[in-house]
């Protein structure tokens, strides 16, 4: 069973439908025990980093993630759901960055392109050995964000370019995350989701 963590973040319905498309049993939940023990956990995320962290704290996400990481249980973070897995974000302040869940050590920083948010379809260069992008190298995915990580993380880093290179996806054993929205990325997105589900 795949659980989608509901912490009050925007559009969960598209994520639910896209993951259900694989034929898997998918539930939307905010219950700690369900989120801890599910075969796989999806952390969606839209909106501001600090608002997401505040909502995540309300559903004890720190405890959930720590449990899953130490037991090597699969997690899939999407968009801000990727960003919160890093150690800190400069979104609310450059001087006083806000702490994330700290699965990976890097910082989430503001993109330098003059037109923000980075909104629309962009090409992803799949990292060497990527399972997530199996059959999907150089495909286009849908992005909506102004902040990103610009250093490699985990075991496999995949990249996108919007005036500067930034992390489009991270694969770190059972913990994966994408800066783009696979549930909104048409056929390529559904294929990526099914690649992930096949790996479970």
């Amino acid at each position: 069973m795949i659980a989608i963590l509901d912490y009050g973040s925007g559009n969960l319905r598209s994520a639910l439908k896209a993951f259900q498309n694989t034929g898997k049993n998918v539930v939307v939940t905010s219950e700690v025990e369900v989120a801890k023990s599910a075969q796989a956990l999806v952390i969606p995320g839209v909106g501001a980093f600090s608002a997401c962290m505040a909502s995540l704290n309300k559903v004890q996400a720190k405890e959930i993630i720590a449990h899953r990481v130490s037991n090597q249980l699969p997690i899939f973070g999407i968009c801000v759901g990727l960003q919160v897995l890093f150690s800190e974000s400069q979104e609310s302040s450059e001087q006083k960055p806000e702490s994330g869940l700290g699965v990976w050590p890097n910082k989430v920083v503001r993109l330098s392109n003059p037109i923000l948010p980075h909104m629309g379809w962009n090409t992803v260069q799949a990292g060497q050995g990527s399972k997530l992008f199996n059959g999907l190298n150089q495909e286009k995915f849908y992005f909506v964000h102004s902040y990103a990580v610009i250093e490699p993380a985990g075991q496999v880093s995949s990249w996108c370019d919007y005036g500067q290179k930034f992390l489009a996806a991270v694969e770190d054993g059972p913990i994966v995350a994408t800066q783009f929205h696979p549930e909104k990325s048409g056929k390529a997105g559904l294929k990526l989701i099914s690649n992930w589900v096949d790996s479970l």
Binding site: H118, G120, W121, N122, T123, Q125, K140, F143, C160, D161, Y162
Partner: peptide
Amino acid sequence: MTLCVRII
């Protein structure tokens, strides 16, 4: 690798 023009 660059952002595509969107047709809506």
